[in-house]
Simulated assay, not measured.
Amino acid sequence: MVLDKVIYVEMEEQINELDEVIVGKVLTGNLKSDIKNTEGDPPINFFDVGIPGYQGKPATQSERRLHEAGEFKPKMLLGLLTGSIPLNPILNGISGRTKTLKKRVEIETKETLILSIKSRLSKDFLASNPLEDYLVADFFYFCADDENFMKHCKNQSDFKILIFLRMKYRQYKDNLNQE
């Protein structure tokens, strides 16, 4: 059976237009504002589950290695009486590894401090104490090589650090003129 009938359907055009559509939260690009507008629970931390956790400054890799190496102390010899003496501190002390690790931590601490000083104070310092661009890094390492660098710059005000830099600047310029 073949059907040869055609059905015509007449359609009318109708347009529905919405004024504005907002899907989800509106992000402004301002991180502080956008974070306040978000929903959800913050991630779980060690306080939430009642376990102790470290809250201090994270140790650098060299600081962690130094801690792992241990440091020999004479009272460790009392462990001979109980039969338990830690070998790592003794072996690392004999081999010189502990001393090397201490030196590495000291160098990294100086490096971090000099980079901090350079980023904070170099523009103001160099405005009144001019140096060629290629000498700037050399000057700051010259300052860091001073045996009193940490004493004059660590945990000191920017003013005291600038006084130290000015003193080292004179010495640095004198060294350049002698060459």
Rank of each mutant, 00 (worst) to 15 (best):
A59P: 03
I51G: 00
N45F: 01
T38Y: 06
P74F: 12
E63L: 01
L78F: 14
S62C: 03
P52H: 03
P74D: 14
I35D: 02
F46C: 09
L80G: 06
F46D: 15
P52E: 07
K75W: 14
N45Q: 05
A69M: 00
P43M: 06
F72G: 04
T38W: 09
L66A: 07
I44M: 08
G50A: 00
N45D: 15
L81Y: 15
K75T: 06
S33G: 04
H67E: 15
G50K: 07
D34G: 03
G56I: 07
G40I: 03
R65Q: 13
S33A: 07
G53P: 08
T60A: 00
D41E: 09
P58G: 02
I35T: 05
I44W: 10
K36E: 06
H67F: 07
V49E: 14
Q55F: 12
F47V: 06
L78A: 09
D34I: 02
Q55H: 13
E39M: 01
L80W: 10
D48T: 02
F47I: 02
L77K: 11
P58H: 10
L77Q: 08
G79W: 03
L77F: 10
E39T: 01
E39S: 00
A59N: 14
K75M: 12
D41L: 02
L66Y: 04
V49Q: 12
D48V: 01
N45R: 07
G79L: 11
I51M: 04
K57E: 15
Q55N: 14
L80E: 15
E63Q: 13
E63F: 03
K73I: 08
R64N: 13
E71K: 09
K73H: 15
H67S: 09
S62L: 09
D48H: 04
G79R: 00
K57D: 15
P52K: 05
E68V: 05
D48G: 05
V49N: 12
